[in-house]
């Protein structure tokens, strides 16, 4: 059985700029694949190619075992970052239009949206708009869901509900490709592809992405001074509360820098987080 989505060495250039460079990726049924990367990493360009909005400059791209096409799009649900809702239609009218277009019968409004069913989308809060966009994307029973920053700007409770929905569909066999730069969301994915400057620089589970990236935690009563000294020494320094963390350096170099500056400290090795691993790769 072919993958729902298969990209093989896909590249897209705009003049001399390479937005996506030789990226390969697959999404299988029931799998939630996270596409991670900073702004400008090439995630949206890759999504646009997958949706057939942009042809690849080179490489092979298959949706349901074939080139992206109208027939393929009928089996796909898409929630764009901008949600793609018609703001001068009501919630129900938006769903009706999508149902008619996909020929999928009448979709049921999610219970949370029933009280606002006849309100214009422009008057709905962002949380309701996102729920509606999800309902519209799911109404025709898609086999593959493509979600571009699906929970951006949503409160934690609504975010958690949307992820429950994503997992419910994945459990029912739907493949999900989701772009995000929220690390907590990345942890909800079965598999991750990390993009940086157009390239897929790492792929696998969260553990695979973190790889052998290490972090050093520094405890010191003078955490601000610690932060300044290590930053001035050119290290990648982050703060976790008042605890200073150094990513991808060496424990010995950290200690040497602090001793040289006469800062009281203790250093110990810790697991790098996904965000730290990403930052280290971006550096």
């Amino acid at each position: 059985m072919p993958s729902l989505l298969r990209a093989d060495g896909v590249t897209r250039t705009f003049g001399s700029f390479t937005a996506v460079d030789d990226v390969s990726l697959t999404v299988e049924p029931g799998e939630v694949v996270g596409l991670l990367g900073a702004n400008g990493a090439g995630k949206t360009t890759l999504i646009r190619m997958i949706l057939g909005l942009l042809p690849p400059t080179s490489g092979d791209l298959e949706l349901f075992g074939d080139a992206p096409s109208r027939a393929g799009r009928a089996r796909l649900g898409y929630v764009p970052q901008g949600l793609g809702l018609w703001s001068s239609l009501t919630a129900v009218e938006n769903l009706d239009f999508v149902d008619d277009t996909f020929g999928s019968g009448t979709s049921e409004l999610p219970p949370e949206l029933k009280p606002v069913a006849n309100e214009l989308v422009a008057d709905l809060g962002l949380g309701h708009q996102r729920q509606l966009a999800f309902a519209a994307a799911l109404g025709h029973g898609p086999e593959l869901l493509v979600l571009d920053e699906p929970t951006s700007g949503v409160d934690p409770l609504s975010r958690s509900r949307l992820w429950d929905q994503i997992h419910d569909h994945a459990d029912a066999g739907v493949g999900v490709l989701v772009t995000t730069h929220y690390m907590q969301e990345a942890q909800q994915c079965d598999r991750l592809v990390l993009m940086s400057r157009g390239r897929a620089v790492a792929a696998g589970t969260e553990r695979d992405i973190i790889g052998d990236t290490v972090a050093y935690e520094v405890d010191s009563p003078h955490w601000q001074r610690t932060f300044d000294v290590l930053g001035s020494a050119g290290m990648l320094v982050t703060l976790s509360g008042t605890r200073v963390r150094v990513v991808d350096g060496s424990g010995r170099a950290v200690a040497a820098a602090l001793e040289g500056a006469g800062v009281e400290h203790t250093v110990h090795e810790a697991h790098a987080t996904l965000e730290e691993a990403m930052t280290a790769r971006e550096r």
């Binding site: 909005l53 109208r70 009928a74 793609g84």
Partner: peptide, 13 residues
């Protein structure tokens, strides 16, 4: 409104 992209990815000719 960005909905033209939404139309483009729907199964519409």
């Amino acid at each position: 409104n960005g909905t033209i992209e939404q139309l483009a990815v729907m199964p519409l000719k």
